[in-house]
């Protein structure tokens, strides 16, 4: 092509060069190279996959009934029969954690879904229409954000009542303000971008610009926030359950399990430890994936 390739500067050599089109074998090789650079993604994705499976098909992972009360098997230490021990009623703790994945995860998923849908809608309207619509919506969002998030979620729980679904809605509505702000920012950025201007001068109509350029480019950056928010939702729902405002007994939910175990922490610490570890690991894994997604989108 051009006689002198105007490549990127060598000082900037740390940045990756665009990869040339690969044939079959080198694609495998480059896939392996990619994996070796992002090896930490493997356990993170693995953990999330396992937890998802717990939620979908808990019966595959344990034959125990999480609600079965066995008076003879109270406070058993972790063993090969009861991996994470048993609680004060003889429930198998491992089974309770596996079955607890479903309320915890559906709660988080619902929270994130509400946050994304409500937030994106508000944000997109605000950013696209601009002017007074934008000013009004943004002031309202400032107000919501000036109330500490967790307290705001508590207030919503008061309105909706206690329970896992209510807690999820509360967390979702609280996070929607953040999503709205992010989406609005992205819409504004896209609106001001050179490629939208180029689309205007190309003759594209404004509706087509919204559909073809602004929306797709505004939604991509939220992907990392969605995964991140998933972890946050797990934590918040667990915290609400811990305060007794979320899942109600005997439903096995992770935060609830920690609360229940806490009374026996001196004698049966596994009842607190294992659900806590599961929560932390789950959140760490989703955060790690979120990090990866955000790095990827910002390097584009």
């Amino acid at each position: 092509m051009t006689a002198i390739a105007d490549t990127t500067d060598l000082v900037d050599a740390a940045s990756e060069r665009p990869a040339p089109a690969d044939d079959g074998t080198s694609r495998v090789v480059s896939g392996l190279v990619w994996l070796s650079r992002h090896w930490s993604l493997v356990p993170a994705v693995g953990i999330v996959a396992i937890i998802l499976l717990w939620a979908i098909v808990p019966g595959l992972f344990t034959s125990q009934d999480p609600l079965a009360i066995v008076p003879t098997a109270r406070f058993l230490h972790p063993s090969s029969a009861h991996w994470f021990g048993t609680d004060q009623l003889g429930h198998d703790e491992y089974a309770r954690i596996v079955y607890g994945a479903r309320p915890s995860l559906t709660g988080s998923a619902l929270a994130v879904a509400i946050g994304v849908v409500v937030g994106s809608l508000i944000g997109a309207v605000s950013g696209w229409f601009g002017r007074w619509v934008d000013a009004l919506i943004m002031r309202a969002i400032d107000v919501v954000l000036s109330i500490p998030g967790f307290l705001f979620a508590i207030v919503i729980v008061v309105v909706l009542g206690f329970g896992i679904i209510q807690a999820a809605v509360a967390v979702g509505l609280t996070s929607s303000a953040t999503f709205a702000r992010l989406i609005r920012g992205e819409v504004l950025k896209a609106k001001a971008s050179n490629y939208v201007e180029a689309a205007v001068t190309s003759g594209t109509s404004s509706l087509a610009i919204l559909r073809r350029h602004v929306l797709p480019n505004s939604i991509a950056p939220t992907l990392s926030l969605i995964t991140l928010q998933f972890g946050v939702a797990i934590m918040w729902i667990a915290s609400l359950s811990f305060l007794g405002l979320g899942a109600q007994p005997p439903q096995p939910e992770w935060g609830r399990l920690v609360t229940d175990g806490r009374n026996y922490i001196a004698t049966a610490s596994w009842l607190t430890l294992w659900p806590a570890v599961v929560i932390v690991v789950a959140v760490l894994a989703t955060n790690h994936i979120s990090h990866f997604v955000s790095n990827r989108s910002s390097s584009r």
Partner: peptide, 23 residues
Amino acid sequence: GLGGDLVEAADLFEKRAPVEVAR
């Protein structure tokens, strides 16, 4: 983007960080 939860804030802040300045 620094609204809402602090955790998000930290992440958003990082995302805004421009790539290393080419010289």
